[in-house]
């Protein structure tokens, strides 16, 4: 048994989500190899070699892998997959885009967003927005899997000393081309890996009011998130969205402010260790999952909270 982890990276650094996928790979057992497909990506390959628990790094460096386009990356993974019993990637927008393409080319049924490894063939995954957990067994020759990153601890980024082997590039499929990206700039921790997340919903009323949450977030070293209602209303960009259709987070502390707690939102945060809800509607469903609930007007409670954190 041997497991190949497809690394997500920006050619110089390995994305933290990859470290969670390495832990899932270690739980399956056997040797863990990491594939770094990129362009000018020697630094990323070296970083991958240092991850604890990694036995080998396969490094394919060619122009066609510069932006991680699925049409180019998938044939590379497929060419290497025959040597492995499992191929894993984190269930990020990158992994979700590439892996089903790999699975179909290998003629196997992918297992999406596993939250636990039972044995080498059997995995647990959430369905129906996390309202049910399915245990599934695969009889496919190669298991193609994406990993829910919040369900596995991150492997140590240092301590490993894997050998880096060059892998042959497979050429440009010529189907898609990269135009550009508009990334949200933020000084705060990344939403999916933050220890504390404070999120606002429709109750925030406008984008300016999110400054109140940002002030609290800065005092707590927290990331700022949002419900779909807040994103749709244009208060904050869509990459703030926590939920079934946004990001899944499981921080130590999740503070939901002015969020009613629709099923869609709960799917993205109900595995948080401690949940706090601040809402003026005491009937809001969010109070059913909150460890600590405060029924209050957020426009009074949030500034008070900010002040209390100074003491």
């Amino acid at each position: 048994m041997s497991v190949l982890v497809v690394a997500e990276h920006d050619n110089s650094e390995i994305a933290p989500a990859t470290l969670n996928a390495v832990t899932a790979a270690s739980q399956i057992g056997g040797d863990v190899a990491v594939l770094v497909g990129g362009s000018g990506s020697a630094a990323a390959a070296e970083a991958a070699a240092k991850i604890a628990g990694v036995a080998k790094v396969l490094h394919a460096d060619a122009a066609e892998y510069a932006n991680g386009l699925a049409e180019n990356v998938a044939p590379l993974v497929v060419a290497l997959a025959s040597g492995y019993s499992h191929v894993l990637a984190p269930a990020t927008s990158y992994g979700k885009n590439v892996m089903p393409r790999v699975a179909a080319l290998l003629d196997v049924q992918q297992i999406s967003e596993i939250s636990a490894v039972v044995d080498a063939d059997t995995f647990v995954r959430p369905i129906y927005a996390g309202n049910a957990m399915a245990t599934v067994k695969s009889s496919d020759a190669v298991k193609v899997i994406t990993v829910r990153t919040t369900a596995f601890d991150a492997a140590a980024a240092e301590g490993g000393s894997a050998a880096v082997e060059a892998a042959d590039a497979k050429g440009d499929a010529g189907l898609t081309s990269y135009v550009g990206a508009e990334l949200s700039s933020s000084e705060r921790p990344e939403l999916t890996s933050a220890k504390i997340v404070i999120s606002g919903g429709r109750g925030m009323q406008n984008g300016d009011n999110f400054k109140m949450l940002e002030e609290v977030a800065d005092k707590l070293g927290a990331a700022v998130g949002a419900s779909r209602a807040a994103v749709d209303a244009g208060f904050v960009p869509n990459d703030y969205q926590v939920g079934q259709t946004g990001k899944v987070v499981a921080p130590e502390l999740y503070v939901a402010v002015g969020i009613s707690g629709a099923i869609q939102h709960l799917a993205g945060m109900k595995d948080s260790k401690v949940i706090v809800a601040i809402n003026k509607d005491e009937e809001a469903p969010i109070f059913q999952v909150a460890d600590y609930g405060l029924v209050a007007d957020l426009f009074e409670a949030v500034p008070e909270l900010s002040k209390a954190l100074d003491d």
Partner: peptide
């Protein structure tokens, strides 16, 4: 995408 938007 996770960090924002990408155009292809």
């Amino acid at each position: 995408i996770d960090g924002g938007l990408e155009t292809i």
